Amino acid sequence: MEIIGELINTSRKLISEAVKKKDGQYIKDIAKLQQDSGATYIDVNCGTFMQTEVEAMEWLVDNVLQGCSVPLCIDSPNPLALNAGLKKTQKDKPMINSLKLEGGNVWKLNLDL
Score class of each variant (00 low, 15 high):
Ile74Gly: 06
Ile74Asp: 05
Val54Gln: 13
Lys13Asp: 14
Lys22Tyr: 10
Val64Asn: 00
Lys88Val: 02
Glu2Met: 09
Gly67Arg: 04
Ile4Gln: 05
Ile8Trp: 01
Val19Tyr: 05
Glu17Arg: 11
Val70Lys: 05
Leu99Phe: 11
Gly38Arg: 08
Trp107Cys: 13
Leu65Pro: 04
Lys22Gln: 15
Met1Leu: 13
Pro94Gln: 12
Ile15Trp: 02
Ile4Leu: 13
Val44Ala: 04
Pro71Gly: 09
Lys32Ile: 04
Ala18Val: 13
Asp43Trp: 06
Leu14Pro: 01
Leu65Arg: 14
Leu65Lys: 15
Gln66Cys: 10
Leu109His: 00
Ile74Val: 13
Leu86Asp: 03
Lys13Phe: 09
Leu82Thr: 00
Asn45Arg: 07
Asn9Leu: 06
Glu58Gly: 11
Asp62Ala: 11
Cys46Gln: 07
Gln66Ile: 06
Cys46Tyr: 03
Asn83Arg: 03
Val44Asn: 00
Pro94Trp: 05
Ser98Gly: 08
Cys68Leu: 01
Ile27Asp: 07
Met1Asn: 12
Ser11Val: 04
Asn105Ala: 11
Ile30Pro: 04
Lys13Leu: 12
Tyr26Ile: 02
Asn105Gly: 01
Ala81Pro: 11
Gly24Arg: 10
Pro94Glu: 10
Gly24Gln: 08
Lys21Asp: 12
Lys108Leu: 05
Leu111Trp: 00
Val64Gln: 01
Pro71Asp: 09
Ala31Gly: 10
Asn83Asp: 13
Leu72Thr: 04
Ala31Trp: 05
Lys13Gln: 14
Leu60Ser: 02
Ala39Lys: 02
Ile15Ala: 02
Leu80Glu: 15
Thr52Ala: 14
Leu14Tyr: 09
Gln90Ala: 15
Lys20Trp: 10
Glu6Asp: 10
Gly24Met: 09
Ser11Ile: 03
Ile8Phe: 03
Ser16Lys: 15
Asp23His: 11
Lys108His: 02
Glu2Lys: 12
Leu111Gln: 00
Asp92Tyr: 12
Asn63Gly: 08
Gly38Thr: 12
Thr10Tyr: 09
Tyr41Gln: 09
Asn110Trp: 00
Ile30Gly: 05
Glu58Leu: 07
Asn105Gln: 11
Lys21Ile: 09
Ile3Trp: 12
Ala81Met: 11
Asp92Ser: 10
Lys87Gln: 14
Gly24Phe: 10
Thr52Gly: 08
Leu14Cys: 01
Leu7Val: 03
Glu55Leu: 15
Ile27Cys: 05
Glu55Ser: 15
Leu65Phe: 04
Gln90Arg: 15
Cys73Trp: 03
Gln25Cys: 07
Val19Gln: 08
Lys32His: 09
Ser69Cys: 13
Met1Thr: 11
Ala18Thr: 13
Lys108Gly: 02
